[in-house]
Simulated assay, not measured.
Amino acid sequence: MTGRIYIDLFTSLDGVAQAPGGRDEDPSHDFPYGGWQAPFPDETIGASVWEGISELDALLLGRRTYDIFAAYWPQQSHRIADVFNRVPKYVASRGLPTLEWEGTSQLGMDLVREVEELRERHESIHVIGSVDFVQTLLKEQLFDVLTLWVHPVVLGQGKKVFPEGAHPANVTLLEPAITGPLGVVQLRYGPKPGDVQTGEVED
């Protein structure tokens, strides 16, 4: 079995993925727009999000997202919580996080090897949020599907999916875009090997 790694990110039109779910989710660097996703309760996109969550059999999270999830999901009692609380959780951190959420373990320092080993244990591994950690996965092309749910709002600041200095890489569109009635667009990409190419645009 070779599992697949899915990166799932809610972003603004200008690529900000910080704290979409709540005002106090991630206020680091004095981010003032926590909860910016709330005005877009899009049923079309929500159905797609749930489809992915319902099929996952492991969560792979960065330290900050893990702490947020661990403080929230064990106290919830709906279908998303049921999945998150049931499946194994893996945390990528150089520190010593408190792993009180049942089913959690910490990855070691050889991240590339550890993530590849997760593919041998699970079929559908989802990375949700975890913007800082995602930079490593994108750089190493340690993913199979990158899903961006792009919302019609410009924030102008915050942690971005592709910040200044992001590693150059090619991606390929895996399926046509889906647009919900509130203007949220789902874009789904896969990694594409090779260096970024340049040239001249001809008339």
Score class of each variant (00 low, 15 high):
1 M>S: 15
2 T>C: 02
6 Y>I: 12
9 L>C: 12
12 S>V: 05
12 S>W: 04
12 S>K: 00
13 L>P: 06
15 G>C: 03
15 G>I: 10
19 A>W: 06
20 P>L: 04
26 D>Q: 05
30 D>A: 09
34 G>E: 10
39 P>H: 09
40 F>D: 00
40 F>R: 01
42 D>V: 00
43 E>V: 10
43 E>K: 15
46 G>V: 07
46 G>Y: 04
54 S>A: 14
56 L>N: 11
60 L>D: 14
61 L>F: 13
62 G>W: 07
63 R>N: 12
64 R>Y: 09
67 D>P: 01
69 F>L: 07
71 A>G: 15
73 W>A: 08
74 P>A: 02
74 P>G: 01
75 Q>L: 10
76 Q>E: 15
80 I>H: 11
81 A>F: 07
88 P>K: 05
89 K>D: 06
90 Y>D: 02
91 V>Q: 10
91 V>D: 10
92 A>E: 02
93 S>V: 12
93 S>E: 11
94 R>K: 05
96 L>A: 14
96 L>N: 13
96 L>Y: 07
98 T>M: 12
100 E>L: 06
104 T>Y: 05
105 S>H: 02
105 S>L: 04
105 S>R: 09
107 L>P: 09
108 G>F: 05
114 E>R: 06
114 E>I: 03
121 R>I: 01
122 H>A: 13
122 H>W: 09
122 H>I: 09
125 I>W: 13
127 V>Y: 07
127 V>N: 02
131 V>N: 10
131 V>M: 10
131 V>S: 12
132 D>A: 15
133 F>T: 00
135 Q>R: 14
135 Q>W: 03
138 L>V: 10
142 L>T: 14
145 V>N: 13
152 P>H: 08
157 Q>W: 04
157 Q>M: 10
157 Q>D: 08
158 G>T: 08
163 P>Q: 10
165 G>D: 04
167 H>M: 10
167 H>P: 05
170 N>G: 06
173 L>N: 02
173 L>F: 04
174 L>I: 05
174 L>F: 07
176 P>F: 04
177 A>C: 13
177 A>D: 14
179 T>Q: 13
180 G>I: 08
185 V>L: 03
186 Q>Y: 04
187 L>Q: 13
188 R>Q: 14
190 G>V: 06
192 K>S: 14
193 P>W: 11
193 P>G: 13
193 P>T: 12
194 G>F: 07
198 T>W: 14
200 E>G: 04
202 E>S: 11
